[in-house]
Amino acid sequence: MNQNQALPIPANDPFGKATTGKLGMWLFIIIDGLSFAGLLIAGAALRASAPSWPAAGELLNIPLTAFNTFLLICTSFTMVMALNAIQKGDQAGLKKYLTYTMAGGLIFLGIQVYEYYHFIVNDFLLNTSIYSGVFYVTTCFHGLHVLSGVIYIACILYAASKGRYSADNWDHVEILGLFWHFVDLVWILVFTVIYLI
């Protein structure tokens, strides 16, 4: 409903000039962050009561995933560049950087699928042990977020290709950016908890 965008923001609103869409996305990020918190804490609790737990790097390929982490951080950078471009009215720049971001997300997913494939042929499955279960649930939950993010970017990219955004109208790009940065940030936590500790 576009009519809502015309609504005036109440005076002395404690949330400043944030648009309603942005507030909604922030709320969603809090909610989503808490579901990650639920999974990570559940994983930690299982680990605390488990009879044995593999050491860091014993089963998981840390260098490969470290590269993946680096890649995801880079896509956050390109996302900032995309927003920066459209704030200056540069539509071509927006499309270019959104494409880079989407490609980065796809490569991340590709590497994750490769990693999964490698594990599956080696009989490291979801129900092999509690450890494998925690690994798959947490990383797959995050992978689904990256996938949603890629689809979300594709939608915004489509709208961008129709010329919908301009130097005065980039709210949707910023909201997309919030989600993408969240997916990126939460990966750093997942990487630390699942791979490094």
Binding site: D32, S35, G38
Partner: peptide, 10 residues
């Protein structure tokens, strides 16, 4: 908003 996500994880 704060607690339904936790049960979702469960």
């Amino acid at each position: 908003a704060l607690f339904v996500p936790i049960i979702a994880a469960g």
